[in-house]
């Protein structure tokens, strides 16, 4: 599944200072959909190079990290249960890094 991931507000520093990542995620056998929960664990394994605790706490993002799925706050789409589709754009913005 092709997705565009964007990191901002300082989070880009955790993944090679690159803000926009076009990624292709292989779905696990038998699964035909990808949820935000799956995506987060994929990001943690494949993109985050340092200090993962700045990005995640438990199985979700650290409080203070905004998540937008196609420009919409993920709180409105079901947070971890949000299911993703081909070409979706997911943005992570940390609000913890100063004004």
């Amino acid at each position: 599944m092709q997705l565009t991931l964007e990191f901002g507000g300082g989070l880009e520093l955790l993944c090679d200072s690159k803000k926009i990542h076009d990624v292709n995620i292989e779905l696990q056998n038998g699964e035909d959909k990808l949820t935000m929960k799956d995506l987060l664990s994929w990001v943690r394994t494949n993109l985050i190079k340092e200090r993962p605790e700045m990005f995640m706490k438990g199985d979700t993002v650290r409080p203070g990290v905004l998540v937008l799925v196609n420009d919409c706050d993920w709180e409105l789409s079901g947070q971890l249960d949000t299911s993703l589709e081909e070409k979706d754009v997911v943005v992570f913005i940390s609000t913890l890094h100063g004004g």
């Binding site: 937008l68 196609n70 420009d71 919409c72 706050d73 709180e75 409105l76 789409s77 589709e85």
Partner: peptide, 29 residues
Amino acid sequence: ERERKRGGRVCCVCNEARASVKRPKTLQH
């Protein structure tokens, strides 16, 4: 089409556009 699939809720103020934020102050979409 995509918005509809998402169950895209509409804005509770204008009742037209798709809501894109849940305002922490009021919990309004």
